[in-house]
């Protein structure tokens, strides 16, 4: 039963992940005044990359890097409940809690960082260093918000967090915490202005520099699923979770469109700018939000 549930969750995450990825490209094209590719374009890309005849590898650690990354993304999907009540689409979320999920989110990228480091390309490691430096500042406001949510719910379990939001969702209860978390969330989603990690011009697309063919395909697929997992987390933490599948689609979509539109109009911050920005305004928002708790 649990296995079927997990399988369904993965399927949904995969489907919605690619759909949202396609939508993202479409919507940002509209913002730019273009038409953009078809909705399934990202899916086509990933299939094409999977069937490339060659993929360059630099040894077993390089091979394992994207797999660890994808494993981390899959685990995130499995440990975050999709629906805020009942037994269906809960996956393994009863065996873990919010703190575990927060740390699982970093496990995949760290595994991938090992793969990136092992290929000996300095650009990849530059990207990783940027990412880790940015992470320092990115996590601070997010943690502040998450701590507020957990203290409010009196538990780190998702069920308790849903319970605490049954009357009024956290977005309305703690708007400042939501704002702090949302700014970090933009960064977690790799949206501008915090997308300095994979800058194609300066660091040759950063961590992804050496990944070709099936490895890059795996990275693309996991990033689609991982983005969906992050959307889910935000929905669960601040929008009260989803009552049913329709609600899930609606809430993730709203959040996703907001992130996309904001991401399409900003220019990129440098690493230092983004750290300094994140350490000031969102952190302050988070602290004030906590004080008001």
């Amino acid at each position: 039963m649990v296995l079927i549930d997990c399988f369904l969750m993965l399927l949904l995450a995969y489907g919605f992940g690619f759909l949202y990825y396609g939508l993202y490209r479409n919507l940002s094209a509209r913002v730019h005044g273009r038409f953009g590719p078809s909705l399934a374009q990202s899916f086509f890309d990933s299939v094409k990359l999977f069937v490339k005849e060659q993929s360059t590898t630099f040894g077993w650690m390089f091979y394992a890097g994207p797999i660890i990354m994808a494993t981390g993304a899959v685990l995130n999907v499995l440990f975050i409940p999709f629906i805020n009540h009942g037994d269906s689409l809960q996956g393994l979320s009863s065996s873990a809690n919010l703190i575990v999920v927060l740390y699982l989110m970093v496990l995949g990228p760290l595994g991938n960082a090992l793969g990136v480091g092992s290929n000996g390309n300095p650009f990849g490691v530059m990207g990783i260093t940027r990412g880790l430096t940015r992470l320092i500042a990115l996590e601070l406001p997010f943690y502040l918000a998450v701590i507020g949510v957990m203290i409010d719910a009196g538990s780190a379990d998702f069920s308790a967090i849903f319970e605490a939001q049954s009357q009024e969702m956290n977005l309305l209860k703690h708007p400042l915490l939501f704002m702090a978390a949302f700014i970090s969330f933009l960064g977690f989603m790799g949206k501008s202005p915090f997308d300095v990690v994979g800058a194609p011009q300066e660091v040759y697309s950063g961590p992804a520099t050496e990944f070709s063919g099936k490895f890059f395909a795996l990275l693309l697929s996991q990033s689609a699923m991982f983005s969906f997992a992050k959307l889910l987390l935000m929905v669960n933490l601040f929008l009260g979770g989803a009552d049913d599948l329709g609600d899930l689609v609606l809430k993730t979509f709203v959040l996703f469109v907001a992130a996309t539109f904001i991401g399409s109009v900003y220019a990129r911050f440098s690493t230092i700018q983004s750290v300094e920005f994140l350490m000031r305004i969102p952190t302050l928002l988070g602290i004030v939000g906590l004080a008001l708790l």
């Binding site: 060659q54 993929s55 360059t56 091979y63 899959v74 685990l75 050496e210 063919g213 395909a217 795996l218």
Partner: peptide, 27 residues
């Protein structure tokens, strides 16, 4: 999950080809 993904990745059509040497990086 790790084993499943590893299995899938090895099954796909694409062949893993070793880089020539440590200097064979896109630079």
């Amino acid at each position: 999950v790790f084993v499943l993904i590893l299995g899938l990745l090895q099954r796909v059509h694409s062949k893993a080809k070793a880089a020539q040497n440590a200097q064979d990086i896109s630079y």
